[in-house]
């Protein structure tokens, strides 16, 4: 049982091609981020694209509720919400992630969890954790990509505060959910 962590995290037979050295991966990621600023004048982001897709899906179902919602209506104010940097960026991330996993031999349908975590529990945690993150990303005007990574690289004061608080939040509750991971 103790071996299961090392098995799933390190065994090359199960994990496909070796991952990049973290510092190499970091430099690669940093250069992509730099290219985004140089070419498009803005950094990377994930949650904003998801919000735009959600609004596009909801708008025909509940047009009045969306039009009167102060948080959503601004996404529709500049025309088609899907014709936006963040939506196309998200598509690229999906493609890049797929190609990376495919060429690395890491495509596998699985529910990733620690050795002491049940299936149902993991499903609930993933959903609830996601829900909290979606709410948090809208509240903070960005997620780890849009605030911590992109804002951090441009020395935006609020983004650095955000980043410290993400680490603080994670470490603060890590103990309570340890059964899920270790």
């Amino acid at each position: 049982m103790n071996d299961r962590r090392s098995e799933s995290l390190q065994d090359p037979r199960r994990e496909g091609a070796p991952l990049w050295n973290p510092y190499v991966a970091g430099v690669a990621l940093g250069l992509v981020l730099l290219a985004s600023f140089v070419v498009m004048g803005q950094g990377l982001g994930a949650s904003g694209g998801i919000a735009r897709i959600l609004v596009t899906l909801l708008a025909p179902l509940m047009p009045e509720a969306i039009a009167s919602n102060a948080n959503f209506r601004n996404l529709l104010a500049e025309g088609n919400p899907l014709l936006h940097f963040l939506v196309f960026l998200g598509l690229g991330v999906l493609l890049g992630g797929y190609v990376g996993a495919m060429t690395g031999g890491r495509i596998r349908i699985q529910l990733e969890r620690g050795p002491r975590m049940g299936r149902r529990g993991r499903i609930a945690y993933a959903l609830i954790g996601g829900l909290v993150m979606g709410f948090a990303a809208r509240l903070a005007l960005g997620c780890t990509s849009g605030q911590a990574l992109s804002g951090g690289a441009t020395l935006a004061a609020g983004s650095w505060v955000f980043m410290m608080c993400v680490f603080a939040g994670g470490y603060a509750v890590a103990w309570f959910v340890r059964r899920q991971w270790i």
Partner: peptide, 30 residues
């Protein structure tokens, strides 16, 4: 909002195991 949102996002991160961007990558690999 960045302090409160950051803290909540950290909580969501350790509970779900992902942040929004990495969840997209994970979804792409199954």
């Amino acid at each position: 909002p960045q302090i409160a949102g950051g803290f909540l996002l950290g909580v969501g991160f350790i509970v779900s195991g992902y942040c929004p961007g990495t969840a997209i990558v994970a979804s792409a690999s199954g």
